[in-house]
């Protein structure tokens, strides 16, 4: 028996909107720790890792570890039927091949339930090693989204370089080149508007921009985004989910041959 009651149902709606275009089918894993997902995009270049900790749910019942295969587009369709202020409850019986999403309006005057068919999803769970990153950049998530969008109108790949001076995003294409430099800036009214550049070693990596643009669909989840870079590792783009966990995107770099 599985029963997860999420008062801030909009979080789950936002999570699905953020990942449904990158990943088609995925297993949601439910355990005492929380509700999680790990999945790669079809080309195995990007990986999504979601964690919603059990403590973040108003009610969390998961009698045994369970993995539920879902088509994310279909799940997003169902969650779109929930209001932004609705409480969302996920329910599944042991051995059932369906999951039920129950939506309650804040005033309890409208209660809906949507039952979705589960599916078998072949997926391999990857071990993500703990890593010391050469550089960690924290910036407003809207600013990062703006940079990715702007650069993708010029080129297909982005070079992200972190030095003492700050973080530089560069691209080039048929019509020309573009460089955006963000310097550390902590003299802001609100902490979420700050740009913080922590650098242990200078690092410069090249990535396909279209994936970054897909990751920025996580922007509604958090005011800030954290970008962690190491020369031998995939970049991590992380959106914290307040009080609950995180949505992390990993992207493998492009490397000169």
């Amino acid at each position: 028996m599985l029963e997860l009651r999420l008062v801030q149902g909009s979080l789950l709606k936002k999570v699905l909107e953020a990942i449904k275009d990158l990943v088609t089918d995925a297993n949601f894993d439910c355990s005492a720790t929380g509700f999680s997902l790990q999945a790669m995009d079809s080309s195995h270049v990007a990986l999504v890792s979601l964690l919603l900790r059990s403590e973040g749910f108003e009610h969390y019942r998961c009698d045994r570890n369970i993995s539920m295969g879902m088509n994310l587009n279909n799940m997003a369709k169902m969650l779109k039927c929930a209001g932004n202020d609705d409480i969302i409850t996920l329910k599944a019986d042991d051995g059932s091949d369906t999951v039920t999403f129950m939506f309650e309006s804040p005033t309890q005057d409208k209660i809906s339930d949507f039952e979705m068919k589960l599916m078998d999803v072949d997926s391999e769970h990857l071990g993500i090693p703990e890593a010391e990153y050469h550089a960690i950049v924290r910036m407003p998530s809207t600013e990062f989204a703006r940079i990715c969008k702007d650069l993708s109108s010029i080129g297909d790949t982005v070079v992200i370089s972190v030095t003492k001076e700050g973080v530089k995003f560069s691209t080039s294409g048929d019509i020309g080149t573009a460089n955006v430099v963000c310097r550390q800036n902590t003299t802001v009214d609100k902490p979420e508007d700050a740009t913080i550049v922590e650098m242990n070693e200078p690092v410069s990596l090249t990535f396909a921009l279209r994936y970054f643009n897909s990751f920025t669909k996580g922007t509604p989840l958090s005011n800030t985004v954290t970008i962690s870079l190491s020369s031998e590792l995939p970049v991590v783009v992380e959106y914290k989910i307040a009080e609950m966990g995180h949505l992390r995107f990993y992207l493998a770099p492009k490397i000169e041959e």
Partner: peptide
């Protein structure tokens, strides 16, 4: 040219 690596090149299967 540069080669696009896959995630499995960095993270092993469990």
């Amino acid at each position: 040219g540069s080669k696009q690596y896959t995630i499995t090149r960095f993270f092993g299967k469990q």
